[in-house]
């Protein structure tokens, strides 16, 4: 398998680096300070390949706080609001699209 730093990156729009938090698997995003945040609005965003690769390397270097960092597409509205770039990322951010059974679904 090709290492992430050697993979050819193809970016067609704004992207962020996302991962799962080690302790509970929650979805997190790399922020501009190099930390992890659960808020997509606080994520570091780029449209440039080199910057995306650098962010990814930064995310992958942290093996304690987050697991499995990768680059994910986002959409940016005209007023700057970020939303996930595909259904998979929407579900990661917002949870299942179905009501959870029992009390969990209330």
């Amino acid at each position: 398998m090709t290492a992430p730093q050697q993979q050819k990156l193809k970016i067609t729009g704004p992207v962020v680096v996302t991962a799962n938090r080690l302790g509970d698997g929650a979805v997190v995003y790399l922020d501009v300070q190099g930390g992890w945040t659960t808020s997509l609005a606080a994520a570091a965003v780029t449209t440039k390949v080199d910057e995306a690769r650098a962010l990814l390397m930064q995310g992958l270097a942290d093996d304690i706080n987050a697991v499995g960092a990768y680059i994910a597409p986002v959409l940016r509205s005209p007023d700057g609001v970020l939303t996930p770039g595909n259904l998979r990322e929407q579900i990661r951010l917002h949870g299942p699209t179905v009501a959870l059974p029992g009390a969990a679904g209330m």
């Binding site: 698997g25 929650a26 979805v27 093996d63 697991v67 579900i91 949870g95």
Partner: peptide, 21 residues
């Protein structure tokens, strides 16, 4: 590391899915 831990957790049925273990 995660690379070291992943096969150990999998041996106990622990996966990391989209938004949780």
């Amino acid at each position: 590391t995660e690379d070291e831990f992943k096969p150990l957790r999998l041996m106990n049925g622990v996966y990391l899915q989209l938004h949780a273990y």
